[in-house]
Amino acid sequence: MEQRKEITRRLSLLTEKLINPHNDPRIYWAKEVTFDYSSSHAIRVDYMKFKPVNNTVGGIEKGDFYCYEVKSSIEDFRSKNGHNFIGDFNYYIMPEEVYAAVSLEIPYVVGVYCPDGAELHSVKKAKRKDRERPVSEMLLMMFRSAARERRRGD
């Protein structure tokens, strides 16, 4: 059986492929996006994607945020960490056996993707949830996280 770290790595790669399958620079996404980082209740979203309606001011303001939380095991799912669903559409990424074990614990509005070979497939569709944070804060935190990743790559 794969170790949890390897499962997380594989699920993360599949998530990146799902979010941006052709490495398109017009797809706006970031990983490990932290909010409220200077407070005692900081949260980190594993992956976030922003999809504007169009590139006008109104289109950006009306855009949707997608949040993805990677869960490699039942223990990982049941831990208090990583259930930070602050987007318009929110998803877990997990192995099918984990989904089978925890499916009744997943909130109604949260969707689920599971690996199917070299791709992820939807086993539960997310429902729209009104986010509580403004688009400016969401984009700033995504930008901050993406900039951190660029610095690591240099």
Results as ranks from 00 to 15, higher is better:
residue 2 E to M: 11
residue 3 Q to G: 01
residue 4 R to F: 03
residue 5 K to P: 00
residue 5 K to D: 06
residue 6 E to K: 03
residue 12 S to P: 09
residue 13 L to A: 08
residue 15 T to L: 01
residue 15 T to M: 10
residue 15 T to S: 12
residue 18 L to N: 03
residue 18 L to Q: 08
residue 18 L to K: 14
residue 20 N to G: 04
residue 21 P to N: 09
residue 24 D to A: 05
residue 24 D to Y: 02
residue 27 I to A: 00
residue 29 W to P: 02
residue 30 A to K: 01
residue 30 A to Y: 01
residue 31 K to D: 14
residue 34 T to S: 15
residue 36 D to S: 10
residue 38 S to G: 15
residue 41 H to N: 11
residue 43 I to W: 00
residue 44 R to D: 01
residue 47 Y to S: 08
residue 47 Y to N: 06
residue 49 K to Q: 15
residue 52 P to C: 09
residue 55 N to M: 13
residue 56 T to H: 08
residue 58 G to Y: 06
residue 59 G to Q: 13
residue 61 E to A: 14
residue 62 K to Q: 14
residue 65 F to Y: 02
residue 66 Y to F: 02
residue 66 Y to N: 06
residue 66 Y to C: 00
residue 67 C to L: 06
residue 69 E to Y: 06
residue 70 V to G: 07
residue 70 V to P: 00
residue 71 K to Y: 10
residue 74 I to L: 13
residue 78 R to E: 14
residue 80 K to M: 04
residue 82 G to K: 07
residue 83 H to W: 12
residue 84 N to P: 00
residue 84 N to Q: 04
residue 88 D to L: 07
residue 91 Y to G: 06
residue 93 I to C: 11
residue 94 M to E: 14
residue 98 V to A: 05
residue 101 A to V: 10
residue 110 V to P: 04
residue 111 G to A: 03
residue 115 P to V: 04
residue 117 G to M: 00
residue 119 E to Y: 08
residue 127 K to Q: 12
residue 127 K to M: 11
residue 128 R to A: 10
residue 133 R to Y: 15
residue 135 V to S: 05
residue 136 S to G: 14
residue 137 E to N: 02
residue 137 E to W: 09
residue 139 L to M: 11
residue 146 A to P: 03
residue 146 A to G: 04
residue 148 R to P: 04
residue 148 R to C: 05
residue 149 E to L: 13
residue 149 E to M: 05
residue 154 D to E: 10
